[in-house]
Each structure stands twice: as structure tokens, then as C-alpha cells.
């Protein structure tokens, strides 16, 4: 039988330098954990609580065991805390820690993390809640100064938006900002993500949007047969008619298709 002595240490005697603001509180049933006198978990426990000092073994393994999952923002803050606390060992921790969380350290990842750390905590939390990855944040790397863009990231984090919509809104916001749109214009003025995104897309593609809108208006006024709906729609790089026909007999269908010939002629004249 192997007996391992576990050292308990008052939290008041532990450093909180490695507090990376984890999103989930450490479960009350477990003691806080520490490594070489630095708290790894339970950062909000009272100073009189005890922390379990782990064996002087693998720090990366300890993190992965304590935090099986970390969002990109949490990992970014953790890396920042580790670098500040253990500058001489940081390079040894960095790559294995990233690997433990299914990331591969690279110059690009480093730049993404630096950019993310310049944003507000609310945006960082949003990134983790939506499970955004490094590629989703690539638009931030195009900004010469992230601080100028912070009102946008703050507003985006408040919008009730899906991950896919949010990633697209971030990209459009950055591009429109770089194209010279005033930031105030870009801030959402509606709680409807789809309306908001549509506005951003229209601003990002003004010529095509204007052209599509002109066709949409025109097509709505064409002499559509009864129970036939025609709309100008965009399908990727192609735009054209989408036609729905309601018909109850072969004869009726034939008549409607004949009537649609005149629509075809109208379309030909306008093309």
C-alpha cells in the first residue's frame, strides 16, 4: 500500500497570480488546488479555507484534470498569467498546454490571443459561451488598433445572436470599419440579429444590394398570374427568379405556364 502525504495549505498563504477568471466556480465539494504555492482553482474561496498542494509534477496535467475544457478566452488569460508568473518556464508550458486543449501553438495563435486579450471581459465571455475558435476571431487581426473597435465588440456581446451570425457580424463589422464606416453606424440598433446582419451585408455589398433591390421591386410589379408568386432572390453568386406555382390540375398548370411566357418576355426585355 502506498501512502501519499498530501500537504494542505491555507489559501491565505497561496498566491492568486494564476487566477485566469475561469467561468465556472470550482465545486464546493473539492478543496482548492495549489501548485508550488500558487492557487490553480478555488480563487474565490475565503482565505481561511485550505488548499491541497499538488505533487511537484506536471502542471499541464493538473490543469487538464482540473479544467477538462477551457474556452479560448480562458486559455488566453491562463497563458498570460503563466507567462507573468513563471517567465523562465513559460515556453516549456506553452506548447503542451495548448496541445492539451486541442490547439497548436503558432505565431498566428499567439497574435489571436494577444488580440483577444485586448477586448473586454464581456466579449471574451461571449467568445467562450459561443465556443468561438481562433479562425472565427481572425478579423480582429486586421485591425491596426483594437482599442478603437471595442465599442463594437461590447455591443456584439450583448446581442442575442447565434455563433454563426456572431462570427459573420464580427467579420462584417471589422471590414466595414476598415472601409471607413463610422463605428456608431455599425453598432446594432435592433435586437433582431437577422435584420442587423442584413443591414451589414447591404453596406458591405452596396452595388449588388442596390441592384438586387431594384430587381426585387421591379419583379414584384410584373403581371404574375393568379396563385403564382415570383420573387427576385439571390442564390450565392447568382440572382434570379424564384417562382412558386399553386395549381390543382394539369390544365390549370398548362395555362399558368403559358401565362409565365409573358413573364419571360418581360424579363428578357429588362435584361
Amino acid at each position: 500500500m502506498v501512502v501519499r502525504l498530501m500537504l494542505l495549505k491555507p489559501i491565505s498563504q497561496c498566491s492568486k497570480c494564476l487566477d485566469f477568471l475561469p467561468r465556472r466556480p470550482w465545486p464546493q465539494v473539492f478543496p482548492a488546488l495549489a501548485w508550488r504555492g500558487h492557487l490553480l482553482t478555488g480563487f474565490h474561496r475565503p482565505p481561511t479555507d485550505m488548499a491541497l498542494e499538488l505533487d511537484d509534477g506536471g502542471l499541464v496535467d493538473a490543469y487538464k484534470a482540473a479544467y477538462p475544457e477551457l474556452g479560448l478566452s480562458e486559455l488566453a488569460r491562463l497563458l498570460r498569467a503563466l507567462e507573468a508568473t513563471f517567465p523562465e518556464y513559460f515556453l516549456e508550458f506553452r506548447n503542451p498546454l495548448c496541445t492539451a486543449y486541442s490547439l497548436r501553438w503558432s505565431d498566428r495563435l499567439g497574435q489571436t490571443i494577444q488580440a483577444l486579450l485586448q477586448t473586454q471581459l464581456s466579449f471574451q465571455t461571449w467568445v467562450d459561451d459561443k465556443k468561438l475558435g481562433p479562425r472565427d476571431l481572425s478579423p480582429l487581426l486586421a485591425l491596426p488598433e483594437i482599442s478603437e473597435f471595442l465599442p463594437y465588440t461590447e455591443a456584439l456581446a450583448r446581442l442575442p445572436i447565434s455563433k454563426v451570425e456572431g462570427v459573420r457580424a464580427l467579420e462584417l463589422g471589422v471590414e466595414l470599419f476598415l472601409l471607413g464606416r463610422p463605428l456608431n453606424d455599425l453598432l446594432p440598433s435592433t435586437d433582431s440579429p437577422s435584420l442587423y446582419l442584413r443591414r451589414l451585408e447591404q453596406w458591405r455589398r452596396p452595388r449588388t444590394s442596390e441592384n438586387d433591390e431594384a430587381w426585387r421591386t421591379d419583379v414584384a410589379q410584373w403581371p404574375w398570374p393568379a396563385q403564382v408568386q415570383g420573387q427576385w432572390q439571390r442564390f450565392g453568386d447568382q440572382a434570379g427568379l424564384e417562382i412558386k406555382i399553386r395549381t390543382t390540375s394539369a390544365d390549370d398548370l398548362k395555362k399558368k405556364l403559358e401565362r409565365l411566357n409573358s413573364i419571360g418576355e418581360t424579363w428578357s426585355c429588362k435584361s
Binding site: 481572425s138 486586421a142 471590414e175 476598415l178 449588388t208 453568386d237 440572382a239
Partner: peptide
């Protein structure tokens, strides 16, 4: 992303109004 970071939005290319084509590439309107 790479084009945006290397050339900003001052390029006709990064400014382009593009859409997803049937081969998955971003293209001008047909």
C-alpha cells in the same frame, strides 16, 4: 483573412463584393 491582414481593405480585391459560387469559391455576382 490572410488577404485582409496583409493588404487591409485598401485593395480592390479585399473590397470586392463577392458571393459563394457553386465551387465554394468567393466570386463576383455572375
Amino acid at each position: 483573412a490572410m488577404m485582409r491582414e496583409r493588404f487591409g481593405l485598401n485593395s480592390y480585391v479585399t473590397q470586392a463584393e463577392t458571393f459563394s459560387g457553386r465551387d465554394g469559391k468567393l466570386r463576383y455576382d455572375a
